[in-house]
């Protein structure tokens, strides 16, 4: 077993054995969860705080469930970012949390790098639950686990990540994780939603869905924010145009491999980036399975970080 990391801030920089260890452990938690058993002694007496500066339902709930299944005392804190000066509040909050002897701090923040800043100021293990347009590491881990369970491996798979890559922390974390694990990653999207330097991240860039999806084993759709598709700040003209050229429907999915699976981190914009016929396809869509893997992966992450942060042991 390798040395336990102190925080989980980003996938970039992680090595294959670290990722594999987390996925293997998560795998065992999948079985535990399905068996209906719990391991409530593992994090007994530990305090875990969900510190969310951005609205979230599924990620926060998933972390909360993971913490409770391992026996931690879980506290949810929602902090509005609009009312206060962000930088000052973040460090003030860090000082407050430190005084409470928190063990595990799960952070979501609208600014890229906010969890990194917090990690410098608190004694707790910090878990990034999504920061700005930077990373969302547990999402990539749960996506990696879902793919590995369905396809038996990550190495050598052709994985197409489609949509608003420019603003997606899910895309960045997945690009790092999947390229590290030897997958061939492609990104597909309108030229205005793909970062100019995307190719430098070790991926192939496509703008046409047909070319990008050909031979893909996995089709990973990204959520497109409504405000990107209209108004003065719009980067694509309209939802209907987006759906016509980049929305995943049966016709476009047919360009991928016959057994390609469809993923989406949720919440979905049906009829914009994904058609319901594909999203709800019981054979191709693994979107619900992703949610299940989310709890198992977060249990594994909490478990591993708690090992490295045992204050009293």
């Amino acid at each position: 077993m390798i040395t336990s990391p102190r925080h989980l801030l980003q996938i970039e920089g992680m090595h294959p054995p670290e990722i594999e260890t987390m996925l293997d452990l998560a795998e065992s938690y999948v079985l535990l969860n399905r068996s209906g058993k719990t391991q409530r002694d593992l994090l007994r007496g530990r305090t875990m705080i969900n510190l969310f500066f951005e609205d979230s339902t599924r990620t926060r709930t998933s972390f909360e469930l993971a913490g409770k299944r391992l026996g931690a005392d879980v506290i949810n804190m929602s902090v509005s970012t609009s009312s206060v000066n962000k930088g000052e509040t973040l460090l003030d909050t860090a000082a407050t949390l430190n005084a409470m002897n928190c063990d595990l701090l799960v952070v979501r923040h609208g600014q890229s790098g906010a969890p990194n800043l917090l990690a410098q100021k608190v004694d707790a293990a910090v878990i990034n639950a999504g920061d700005g347009t930077h990373e969302h590491p547990t999402q990539a881990l749960l996506d990696g686990l879902t793919i590995r369970r369905r396809k038996g491996r990550l190495e050598g798979l052709v994985i197409a990540i489609c949509g608003d890559v420019l603003h997606s922390r899910v895309a960045r974390s997945n690009i790092h994780l999947l390229t590290t694990m030897g997958s061939r990653v492609r990104v597909i999207g309108p030229p205005t939603l793909i970062p100019a330097d995307a190719g430098r991240l070790g991926v192939e860039v496509f703008h046409h869905m047909k070319k990008g999806l050909e031979g893909a084993d996995v089709v990973m759709m990204l959520r497109v924010q409504r405000e990107r598709m209209s108004g003065a700040g719009g980067l694509v003209p309209s939802p209907r145009e987006y759906f016509r050229f980049w929305g995943l429907d049966r016709e476009k999915l047919a360009w991928a491999k016959d057994d390609a699976i469809v993923m989406h981190p949720g919440p979905m914009n049906r009829g914009v980036e994904i058609d319901s016929a594909v999203a709800d396809d019981p054979v191709r869509s693994v979107i619900k399975e992703q949610v299940e893997m989310g709890v198992a992966v977060r249990m594994a992450v909490l478990d591993i970080l708690a090992r490295g942060n045992r204050r009293n042991d």
């Binding site: 209209s230 108004g231 003065a232 719009g234 980067l235 694509v236 003209p237 309209s238 209907r240 145009e241 016509r244 050229f245």
Partner: peptide, 9 residues
């Protein structure tokens, strides 16, 4: 000059 038209369509 304010909003991109539906160039693809």
């Amino acid at each position: 000059g304010k909003e991109l038209a539906e160039l693809g369509l």
